[in-house]
Amino acid sequence: MARKDNVASVLAFEKKLVTSDGYMFGTQWDNRTQIVPLALQEKSVRGTISNRFKKSDVQSFEKDPTKLNAKVESANLQRVDSCALGLEQDTLNLQFSVKVLGGITQPSACNNALFKQSYSAAANTYIAEQGFTELARRYAGNIANARFLWRNRVGAEQIEVQVKAKNNSIEQAWTFDAYQFSTKNFDSNNEQTDQLAAQIAKVLASESDFLLLEVSCFVLVGKAQEVYPSEELVLDKGKGGKSKILYDVKGIAAMHSQKLGNALRTIDTWYPEFSDPETNAGPIAIEPYGAVTNLGKAYRTPKDKQDFYTFFDNWARGEKLSRVEDEHYVMATLVRGGVFGESDK
């Protein structure tokens, strides 16, 4: 069949890892019977001028150093949100849930019957051959290593991750020492993560099953130490507005579900630069172009034919990809979900 007859201009997939917001509490490492919700605090601070000046300003300062003194004397007044543990608290407790869903073989929207048929055949072949074992192992690894803590993971003395998995037929629980699992690779073998991965893989490969994972993570950071909820993106703060606005839900400091989800899908070690010893690169989040916004770089470009669409357009029409790793990447992108329609013009 000609390709022009096998084009889905409307094509969408629902995400199969649905993450809640993460809620932050304070407690004590040796006595966790009481956890207290953490609230945001507003601070007014008098900072110093430390931004890079324009070349014209620098030249002016060279001619007249007193102008720089005048600049420095001007107070950099700021209003910011912050969040910290209480005086007697030394441990952050982060709680969130993840719902794992099946049904990956059927798009949520597709306007071409031929494409839907060829895609479903490719997806069923992948499930029969791979069974989501590799992807689930990596998702489980990112739960066990507490990658979802982001900045809160840095400088922590101890990190314990408690996971409960439940649905209509199972209810299991595991406890992980996050420092026993690397954030640079997924090479570690562990019986408990294998058990968790098996449950995730089973649901992802199913037609309509589900699994709810309840995650409670305890992080020993030190008494009264600052912790880091998500920061809100505010495009127009207005004159005199806060220069940093943190996220909370009904007075409880929180982390965005998108940020937690990004951490769980940071499993892409199949992009070309990962294997380059000079870059010392780690896993990146599953994205159609391998975009890492804080680095301002796309690691999977159409020019190099390593992006999702290059692989997916051929694979979904029945062509075998040259590497099984590329199939893992394609399926992980579909688990992520999104709108992937192709122009029919």
Results as ranks from 00 to 15, higher is better:
residue 64 D to R: 00
residue 199 Q to Y: 05
residue 217 C to M: 00
residue 28 Q to V: 05
residue 164 K to Y: 09
residue 119 Y to N: 10
residue 152 N to V: 03
residue 226 E to R: 03
residue 16 K to R: 08
residue 81 D to Q: 06
residue 312 F to G: 00
residue 270 W to M: 10
residue 305 K to H: 11
residue 64 D to S: 01
residue 105 T to A: 14
residue 276 D to N: 08
residue 261 G to K: 14
residue 257 S to I: 06
residue 19 T to D: 14
residue 186 F to D: 08
residue 212 L to I: 14
residue 305 K to Y: 07
residue 222 G to L: 06
residue 139 Y to Q: 07
residue 267 I to K: 05
residue 14 E to V: 07
residue 253 A to Q: 05
residue 339 V to K: 10
residue 150 W to R: 01
residue 32 R to T: 14
residue 312 F to D: 00
residue 87 L to W: 04
residue 198 A to I: 01
residue 345 K to S: 11
residue 327 E to S: 05
residue 45 V to P: 02
residue 51 N to P: 10
residue 185 N to E: 15
residue 86 G to F: 02
residue 340 F to M: 06
residue 101 L to E: 03
residue 133 T to D: 13
residue 230 S to P: 00
residue 238 G to T: 01
residue 331 M to E: 02
residue 7 V to S: 11
residue 186 F to L: 12
residue 64 D to I: 00
residue 110 C to L: 07
residue 225 Q to N: 06
residue 295 L to K: 11
residue 236 D to F: 15
residue 159 I to S: 00
residue 176 F to S: 07
residue 175 T to C: 12
residue 301 T to E: 11
residue 28 Q to P: 03
residue 337 G to C: 12
residue 335 V to H: 03
residue 136 A to W: 01
residue 270 W to G: 04
residue 159 I to M: 00
residue 225 Q to M: 03
residue 184 K to W: 07
residue 187 D to Y: 15
residue 135 L to C: 05
residue 65 P to F: 00
residue 313 D to K: 11
residue 275 S to R: 09
residue 219 V to F: 00
residue 228 Y to V: 02
residue 5 D to G: 12
residue 74 S to R: 15
residue 182 S to V: 08
residue 39 A to N: 11
residue 207 E to N: 13
residue 40 L to S: 01
residue 77 L to F: 06
residue 264 L to K: 13
residue 231 E to V: 06
residue 46 R to V: 13
residue 144 A to M: 12
residue 268 D to K: 05
residue 12 A to N: 14
residue 260 L to V: 11
residue 109 A to F: 09
residue 114 L to A: 15
residue 255 M to F: 10
residue 176 F to T: 04
residue 198 A to H: 07
residue 238 G to C: 08
residue 27 T to Q: 01
residue 124 N to H: 12
residue 174 W to Y: 09
residue 208 S to D: 04
residue 281 A to D: 06
residue 239 K to C: 04
residue 74 S to G: 13
residue 43 K to T: 03
residue 87 L to V: 05
residue 295 L to I: 00
residue 127 I to H: 07
residue 115 F to A: 08
residue 229 P to Q: 08
residue 35 I to T: 13
residue 80 V to F: 03
residue 204 L to S: 06
residue 229 P to F: 09
residue 163 V to T: 01
